[in-house]
Design a protein around this nucleic acid. Structure first.
Lengths: 234, 234
DNA sequence: CCATTACCCTGACAAGCGTTAGGCTGAATT
DNA sequence: AATTCAGCCTAACGCTTGTCAGGGTAATGG
């Protein structure tokens, strides 16, 4: 990573024709191949920029054959988003049922969110950028999951505030700030970059901790000082 | 704001047919009308989801007539992005030429970025989400502006770190965190929400200050305590 | 009064879209 | 040996896309 913001590797105009099946998914089932290729194209071109014919040609089959596996283009998008967000939600549910203190839960939640968005960056990116492409019925399903996710996150923040360890003025502003910051890693993080996902998660975790923790709070399980030399903040 | 993440007001499928010219732009020049309507549609449907025919029908003219004002769809997008990012950049240039201390410059930069993205949310949102829709030549122009923006922001962070007032481990991670967090306000802020843009900018400013300032740093021009009662952070 | 210009129109073009109908093939199941 | 069925095909459907050529009309400026 470290560079710009990304999302533009295979340059929109001359997207490289015809079908060499990416060897990475040669062994997967056709269904998974379609999912994977669809995900890739959605990430790079968006829903209305992705075509069934391009999914097909990447897999060296014809567009019509896709309908043996999926009933429509919309369903490809919907299942991808549903699966992704549901998995993301399950992770947060586990954290919030862990019985830990709010400081540790916040740490874990941020870490989980960042690692998820850096390791499954395409799915994650799509799941928050293609809401507008969902048909109404599907949209309602996704928004419900999403609201539940925000609700859980908010409850961590609120418990921390009640306990006096978080400085949070407006819960939904702070929640939006934290979540969007973590979500955005899916846009700029690159696994080929100098920093591994773990390191990014650590740094963002420290960032959020410093931003929220009151000075009387226990420093949570802060793994290491934030700055190389000089100071160790908070 | 305060609710979900947004960007989905006019529900994709049944987007409300035919042309009532939005009265808000009845007096503008045709060129500006096209710009404005194009911006609106780009915001809601993305580049490949926006059609020339829909711009036209909103203005009660035919699609072909648009070509009297713009040579192509691509140019509508490009000019919009170019103008927006250039304006954003000018603001940051002024700040970084102000001769203030890094703490104040960071404050001002965050505030500028947030206010810009909340007040011109459509243009701003498009300018960072539609990079992938730019033709290569245009993309290079935009990326140049963008990199310059990041460079200026980085230099504020680095000066603050050298001075010992910012705790910044990895400059580009921290910069990406701050900028994407501020940028994302264009996605969830709503002028009809309970909080005015100013208040959001203040709260995010405080968030960033708390995250970055070392405990030896002067508390900058912090306008008010971060939490209602109990504590005043940093 | 004539010429120019700004602006919009009709009508069409080639290309591309998601999707469907119907048929072929070869392997698995009975 | 007969049947089923997954998986792919060709061919086409109706529609939408960006864009262009060419023509009209009303206002402007000499």
């Amino acid at each position: 990573m470290a560079g710009g913001v990304g999302t533009l590797l295979p340059a929109a105009p001359g997207r490289g024709k015809r079908g060499m099946v990416p060897p990475s998914l040669a062994s997967a089932s056709r269904l998974d191949q379609i999912r994977k290729v669809g995900c890739h194209l959605l990430f790079h071109f968006g829903y209305s920029g992705m075509t069934m014919r391009e999914i097909a040609s990447t897999l060296d089959i014809k567009a019509a054959s896709l309908y043996h596996h999926f009933p429509s283009k919309q369903v490809i998008l919907f299942e991808l988003m549903q699966g992704t967000i549901a998995e993301l939600l399950r992770g947060l549910q586990e954290i919030s049922e862990s019985g830990q203190e709010p400081e540790q839960q916040l740490d874990a939640a941020v870490r989980w969110h960042v690692l998820f968005h850096t390791q499954k960056k395409e799915e994650a990116f799509i799941s928050h950028s293609e809401l507008r492409s969902l048909e109404e019925k599907n949209l309602r399903v996704i928004l419900k999951l999403r609201r539940e996710y925000e609700r859980l996150f908010d409850s961590i923040l609120k418990r921390g505030r009640r306990k006096g360890v978080f400085q949070v003025k407006n819960t939904s502003v702070v929640r939006n700030c934290i979540l969007t910051m973590c979500t955005a890693t899916a846009g700029w993080f690159s696994p080929e970059g100098p920093l591994p996902a773990e390191a990014v998660a650590d740094e963002i975790g420290a960032f959020v901790r410093s931003a929220l923790l009151t000075d009387t709070a226990t420093p949570a399980a802060k793994p290491e000082p934030v700055v190389a030399a000089d100071y160790s903040g908070s």
